[in-house]
């Protein structure tokens, strides 16, 4: 028992340290890429760290309409993000938390985070935030089936229900036999990734227009440390879902935590650049067209499932 604890606890904190240290740089890289494509200097890549630190140092303003729910929202979304990353294998080894079925918990933890973010948004009694919550509700609910079907494809290929097995070395072999299915899943996951992280073409994180945003408008009234938690949580979410994508596309062979972590980090930087390029070359979808886009992702993931099922 004590041996298990002495192994488990350091792994836990190592994972958190890595994620907390790496994740804020990713939005910074996206912003830098966008600036670079647009021919601008752009903010330094470490700007998100500065923002978070600055926000933690600030005071906060609360609306008189709000209740404890408004204050609980950021805490829950940050905790959920921190819990979810424990299921992601960083290096070539297993994640600190792994069991058969952890992929379901992984997907649902984000659901908890979303639920409380939405209720916190509605707590302000503002039409803007209601609008954001309504959009978040519908789009995330449509992205969910695509995510699950994608995970199912991977699970079927890996023969396991654990994220650590799904994203293991075995993927290399699977790529060599079932490349089409994996490509379909990757495409679907990119869509889910963009949706969940409120990126163009689903959402435009940079616009200041309350009427068109999704995620940003939900957190309009949060300030100070609460906003810092939200920003940090969304960076961690970017990391977690991004790591899922990177691990699929580039299965990490072996290596310890830090060597594998470095490879993963490089992959995530690449993903951030890719997101920056996507944001620089695509217009945002009209809101009414987003379900269509997500249905497309769902169909791709479903096709992936069919291919793996038919291959048996």
């Amino acid at each position: 028992m004590t041996a298990w604890i002495s192994e488990f606890v350091p792994a836990l904190f190592r994972q958190w340290a890595f994620v907390l240290a790496v994740s804020p740089i990713l939005p910074g890289v996206v912003a830098k890429t966008k600036a670079w494509v647009a021919g601008r200097q752009g903010p330094p890549v470490i700007q998100p760290y500065r923002d978070i630190v600055k926000l933690f140092q600030k005071g906060a303003a609360y609306s008189r309409t709000t209740t404890w729910i408004f204050r609980a929202g950021p805490v829950i979304s940050f905790s959920a993000a921190m819990a979810a990353v424990l299921m992601i294998p960083i290096g070539g080894m297993e994640a600190p938390l792994t069991f058969q079925g952890d992929l379901i918990l992984f997907a649902y933890v984000w659901g908890t985070s979303r639920f409380f973010t939405m209720t916190a948004a509605l707590d302000t009694g503002s039409a803007f935030e209601g609008m954001g919550a309504s959009r978040e509700a519908v789009f995330s609910c449509l992205a969910e089936p695509a995510l699950f079907l994608g995970l199912l494809t991977l699970a079927r290929e890996a023969g396991s229900l654990s994220m650590s097995d799904l994203l293991s070395v075995g993927l290399i072999r699977i790529w060599s036999i079932h490349a089409p299915a994996l490509c379909l899943v990757t495409t679907a996951f990119i869509v889910v990734f963009l949706t969940e992280n409120s990126r163009i073409p689903i959402d435009d994180p940079n616009t200041h227009l309350e009427l068109t945003m999704i995620h940003e408008v939900m957190v309009l009234d949060h300030s100070g440390p609460d906003l810092a938690l939200i920003e940090y949580a969304s960076a961690v979410k970017f990391f977690a879902l991004g790591a899922l994508l990177v691990r699929i596309v580039y299965p990490i062979r072996s290596g310890g935590f830090w060597a594998g972590g470095a490879v993963l980090g490089i992959g995530l930087l690449g993903l951030s650049i890719l997101v920056g390029v996507i944001e620089s070359t695509m217009a945002r979808l009209r809101l009414a067209r987003i379900p269509q886009f997500l249905a497309f992702a769902f169909v791709l993931a479903g096709f992936g499932v069919i291919l793996t099922l038919a291959a048996a």
Binding site: R289, Q292, V299, G302, I306
Partner: peptide
């Protein structure tokens, strides 16, 4: 609608796999 068409297309695909075999 487009969403319905795509989903119907998916149903067609599933059916085709079933029949194609």
């Amino acid at each position: 609608g487009h969403v319905a068409s795509v989903l119907l297309g998916f149903v067609i695909l599933v059916a085709a796999f079933w029949a194609g075999a």
